[in-house]
Design a protein around this nucleic acid. Sequence first.
RNA 1: UCCUCAGUAGCUCAAUGGUAGAGCAUGCGACUGUUAAUCGCAGGGUUGCAAGUUCGAGUCUUGCCUGAGGAGCCA
Length: 437
Amino acid sequence: MTTTATAPWIYVEKIGGYDGQVVTLKGWLYNKRSSGKLHFLQVRDGTGVIQCVVFKGDVSPEVFELAGGITQESAVMVTGTVKKDDRSPIGFELGVSDVTLVNPAAEYPITPKEHGVAFLMDHRHLWLRSSRQHAIIRIRAEIIRAIRDYFDDNGFTLIDSPIFTPNACEGTSNLFETDYFENKAYLTQSGQLYVEAAAAAFGKVYCFGPTFRAEKSKTRRHLTEFWMVEPEMAYFDLAMDMDLAEDFVCHIVQQVLKHRRAELEVLERDISKLEAIQKPFPRITYDEAIEILRAAGNEDTPWGEDFGGDEETIISQKFDKPVLIHRYPAEIKAFYMKQDPENAKLALNVDMIAPEGYGEIIGGGQREDDLDVLLSKLKTHELPEEAFSWYLDIRKYGSVPHAGFGLGVERTVAWICGLHHVRETIPFPRLMDRLSP
RNA sequence: UCCUCAGUAGCUCAAUGGUAGAGCAUGCGACUGUUAAUCGCAGGGUUGCAAGUUCGAGUCUUGCCUGAGGAGCCA
């Protein structure tokens, strides 16, 4: 008992620096096994899990009995001596001298056995405590840090774009409508138009925040609320845009490999596949992508349509790195994409398809910078000119070539973690049929 | 919106149209090295909802609800 008052509180991930010392851990009981005169308490504290060994001869009878009766996920504080042990996955155990029950847990619904997806999703608030979900969310946090660091360290200014937007700007995509006092407002599907304006003010900018799509999509690649980072650069053309996207994705992968290797191992990710993500990435045109599909047996793949999930998978399996596909038919791309001066049917856009069938993680390109061309494109797309007057001003007052792209955070996390479905890549996913917890 | 499959104990699943079962979890007990510990005992059920066929329905039929997988949709 006396040791509790004096032992320093440390976190499991720092335990290696305290070999032989008496420390206190504050956390929750992850699992427990008992063997007569021994209780093995698996204690997690948010940074890791450590086995705490309670030997009957080392503690008071009261503490031994208490330790044997603690239920899964009860809040506990454990004091003991840090001991090196080769049997431990983290290399250390705690030889317990005292245990304090902070608060007991009621019967915990998530047991160490298998569970169905629906059940786990209903208990997402508790599921986050399990080691696999813990690893995913820490990797997500690392990816987000890598994203911010990359742009902050390379001369970009953060520009927060609005969540409420006045119009259903870009046509085909379904937006969430909200009541905005006397008017309608929509949740943003992209900050892109706003970062274009900001690029003319700051040169290189990026926005980073949630985006919303009301599509009735029920696939492993779709969420209704997801996070997107969108850099936009003045005086950049398509080739420079692709160079940046490539360098950016390499940086993210390297940071995860450097700082979150243990979490990748929890997920049993094939790390060699991530180590292979080095510049340069293959770059093919839309035309070449069509040829790959036709050669792979899809002989009747038509020219002029966007690729579905299956087609992206076939293309990505030809390469062991992300592949950049550029110059799609202008007709299937957004109005603001600049048309290829060498072929009016093509847009100067680029999609990056992740390896291993994870699909599109980046979409972007060079923007139309000619006022007259943009005006005629608005007409062809049947979009209201007056709603875009501020956007047209960017072309009116000192228009320059500029380019950018958007990277979907959840698809990137799914790829790097090797997950089947994006619903595990965000703490509280929002799907077509799921709004809680 | 369409197609396919599923719904039985807290969870994961079994049960030829004929007595409702197991493992895990929970409770009690045994064990000094367990790694999803093991072993013994115990409690735990409106078989998603509604109707129908039948002597008899968890099982067959119809409708509905919920979920999963896939497709479509998705600057």
